[in-house]
């Protein structure tokens, strides 16, 4: 028999799927979501108000820009700050390891909201000493205060991500490079870091998403980010759709990012696939 004729054999039809309990529940729940989506669309269409849109769409956009700037910059600065912290965390000297342990414990153990208030209202209440130090211009501005709070916060989380990722690289990699006589910094940069980054990609991605979501609290300290603009619009119009639009924008950003990170992960791990 030739291979072609073997392929021609007609497969038996798929057994028709029975209406199991699971399937009924599943269809029910999916249709509930469908109804909710339909309800949302009907609500938004009925509440559609061109005047409202032309008045608040630009401010939503500028709020979105503020959110992106704040999160982007604090993630970047936090990444820089996380390097010495992660390094000191595993230092043999107690004087380096303890402070960085305390730092990480403090910023991971307390709410970002409390940290932001502590910096904005707490540190901000020491005006004259800050003026004497020439730092008042910084603490005067709510945006800078938020940037500082977010940077310090994300540095603690990023330090832990970095540390975990570097530790996940087997020590044989270090030893191998050592035996070739490579300097330690070069080993770290060329051998350990690329492997660590693969491990760290997903946690870093999650951290970006967490910061975007967490940044919504700056609205409370007079920064007009996306959430701040939403609250302002709501306090003027008392129209609930202001919050729904914000929800749609946030969801779209987070979903886009999540898919982007998954795509990058698939790409950089291509060589690991068998």
């Amino acid at each position: 028999m030739s291979t072609a004729s073997r392929l021609d054999v007609i497969k038996p039809p798929e057994p028709s799927r029975a209406w199991t309990k699971q399937r009924i529940v599943g269809y029910f729940l999916v249709s509930l979501w469908g109804l909710a989506a339909l309800g949302l669309i009907i609500f938004l269409v009925r509440a559609w108000n061109p005047e409202l849109f032309s008045r608040y769409a630009p401010s939503y956009f500028s709020g979105l820009i503020i959110t992106i700037q704040l999160v982007g910059l604090s993630l970047l600065l936090g990444a820089l700050l996380s390097l010495p912290i992660a390094y000191a965390r595993d230092a043999t000297s107690k004087w380096a390891a303890w402070p960085s342990y305390m730092y990480v414990y403090f910023f991971r153990g307390t709410p970002l909201l409390a940290q932001t208030f502590l910096i904005y209202y707490g540190v901000g209440s020491f005006k004259s000493p800050l003026e004497a130090l020439g730092l008042w211009w910084f603490f005067r501005d709510a945006w800078y205060c938020a940037l500082l709070a977010f940077t310090l916060n994300t540095a603690a989380y990023q330090a832990e991500i970095l540390r975990g990722a570097v530790k996940s690289v087997p020590s044989g990699q270090w030893e191998g490079a050592d035996s070739l006589g490579l300097p330690r910094l070069l080993t770290f940069r060329k051998i350990v870091l690329p492997q660590a980054l693969i491990v760290a990609l997903r946690p870093y991605g999650n951290e970006i998403i967490l910061m975007i979501k967490g940044s919504a609290i700056v609205a409370i300290i007079t920064v007009y980010d996306l959430m701040g603009e939403t609250r302002r619009a709501y306090s003027r119009t008392f129209d609930f759709q202001t919050y729904l639009w914000a929800a749609i924008i946030y969801l779209a950003i987070v979903e886009t990012l999540r898919n982007l990170i998954e795509w990058i992960e698939r790409r950089i791990t291509r060589h690991l696939k068998r």
Binding site: Y121, S125, R140, D141, A142
Partner: peptide
């Protein structure tokens, strides 16, 4: 224009010079 959640915070920041 800086908008605060309550009046007290606006005054506090006036005294703070914000």
């Amino acid at each position: 224009v800086k908008a605060y959640p309550s009046q007290l915070e606006a005054w506090a920041d006036l005294q703070n010079g914000r």
